[in-house]
Design a binder for these strands. Structure first.
Lengths: 257, 257
DNA sequence: ACCAATTTGTCCGTATGTATG
DNA sequence: TCATACATACGGACAAATTGG
């Protein structure tokens, strides 16, 4: 075996279904196929690629899962570009499986949310400020932990939208999903949590409108420290990996896709 | 049609291949199937689920693509938990397709890298500091932009490892991939770039070892500003969406999977 | 509202190459 | 070395849903 040294690398032919997926992917990424374009029927793809329909279908599944292709109501194949919140469940699942702790989540949220609020103070458009204020009004009127959690999540999402940085927006997604259940528990169980949340949202929203980075930073820090204290108040351990309770809530979130 | 109001939601039966994928996914996420466990042959799954082999295969493709299952050398199905760098290409592709600008990337890098270096100063273990120093030595010895870029990327990866926060680590992945080609260009074209990079890496590595947050922050900021200046020196526009050049480099990165 | 053509989801049988013992 | 097991891929088929008259 060693007589001819190692002249050549081992050949490993990629399976046909992968080649199908990659061929289509290339067209999408390169822009020759754009979001909304029809991909044609399976029979057409069979003809073009010269492979069996089962093979085409396996390839399609890959793209479907990657979010590059989806089937509209009529089940026709349509090109689409993956939105952040499509990736979020997978990122979240990876973090859960790697047993990320609540401390890591909280630390990361601290970093990301403070950065977001700083950018928001700088870049926020009147439109998004309006959205933040609308959300605030709804939050003040809302009753029940579940409703408030949804609005809280939306408010933070709007803040990242106001920040105008989509890399940070993507980075935030998994933390947002994972904090949801804990936040609901906190709002339901810890008495002053709701009023403190509303106070923080209002002051930060005002700070964004007035372009006041100091106040924004300060109150975001307080807001997140409140979350952490609420979490500890419930008797939970920050250094504990994210557990079963959360997995279920991810599952239900994924069903909305 | 409106005679009976809208009492029921539209029924949409999930296709069998999705049910197969979800059934297996549940076992993995719930912990009943752990990384490394064998999933059994396709024939066995056919029997258990009572569906056709083609259907099983389509379901498997979904899990394979999600990184929850892979085939080892013998092509046997094995459970695995998705690693961050498996998600990175997808995140990166999403960002590219959404026409994220270099400015967003740079801003986000600034936020993430500075946070990372702060955490690293606090949490770095002797082992990881050793790795940073080894990398530094190799970088000083290296010749050629390509080699140095690889080591630079590794160094930043080690820094996030030292920071001990996997949420930030995941958040960094797409930025790391997207900065690669630009960094290579800069190192190849801008004369003092290499020595400045090495200087920054050395000082930051030292600061991490000495637990000196001030120096670490300061030099990380300088390091990233250097990157930005190098980018602008090349005549590129920070507010330009990431373009074709980058897509190719992502493609080649994905082939290593 | 009905009908014919298309298309998808699923299934069966089979051939071929490769890995394992 | 040989036999067995298995993954990949193919051709063909049919029912249910969708489309377009």
């Amino acid at each position: 075996m060693s007589s001819a040294a190692e002249r050549f690398e081992r050949i490993h032919a990629p399976p046909a279904y992968q080649l199908v997926a990659e061929a289509i992917e290339k067209q999408i990424v390169s822009g020759r196929l754009r979001a909304g374009d029809a991909l044609g029927t399976e029979a057409e793809l069979v003809k073009q690629f010269g492979v069996n329909r089962s093979t085409v279908r396996e390839g399609i599944r890959l793209l479907e899962q990657a979010g590059l292709v989806h089937r509209d109501t009529s089940r026709r194949l349509t090109v689409s570009i993956p939105h952040y919140d499509r990736l979020a469940p997978r990122m979240t699942r990876a973090l859960v499986l790697h047993q990320v702790t609540f401390r890591e989540l909280w630390e990361a949220s601290m970093v990301l949310e403070i950065a977001a609020v700083e950018f928001a103070v700088e870049h926020a458009t009147p439109g998004v400020i309006r959205e933040l204020e609308d959300n605030l009004a709804k939050t003040e009127a809302a009753r029940g932990a579940a409703a408030i959690v949804a609005l809280d999540s939306e408010w933070h999402g709007l803040l990242f939208k106001a920040a105008g940085n989509r890399v940070l927006q993507l980075a935030r997604e998994p933390a947002a999903l994972l904090n949801l259940p804990a936040t609901e528990l906190i709002l339901a169980m810890v008495d002053p949590a709701v009023s403190r949340l509303i106070e923080a949202h209002r002051i930060i929203t005002d700070a964004v409108r007035r372009h006041d980075p100091e106040a924004a930073r300060l109150w975001m820090r307080r807001h997140l420290n409140d979350w952490r204290r609420g979490f500890e108040y419930l008797g939970k351990d920050l250094d504990q990996p994210i557990d079963q309770v959360y997995i279920e809530s991810i599952g239900s979130a994924r069903q909305r896709e």
